[in-house]
């Protein structure tokens, strides 16, 4: 992923409920993939990180996958 996924798909607000999108940005262990590998802009990466963390809090995404 070289180009920013969110600006390419015209997503302005990253929603924590959109688990299908967020799943693209976590690795098989459930960790958040770094901006170097995702190619997401710094601003969107910050939004993405908090969206994933909110989703984790409400049990939509795992903290760890063993």
């Amino acid at each position: 992923m070289k180009q920013d996924y969110f600006s390419a798909n015209n997503i302005k607000y990253i929603d924590y409920k959109d688990v299908e999108i967020l799943k693209k940005f976590i690795n098989p262990n459930g960790k958040i993939i770094s901006h170097k590998r995702t190619g997401v802009t710094a601003k969107n990466q910050r939004q993405l990180t908090s969206a994933i963390k909110h989703a984790r809090f409400l049990g939509l995404l795992p903290f760890v996958v063993k």
Binding site: K12, Y13, I14, D15, Y16, F57, L58, G59
Partner: peptide
């Protein structure tokens, strides 16, 4: 559990 967030008016999903 519950979570209160600031958000935007537009539909986000």
């Amino acid at each position: 559990r519950f979570l209160i967030l600031k958000t935007v008016k537009e539909n986000t999903i």
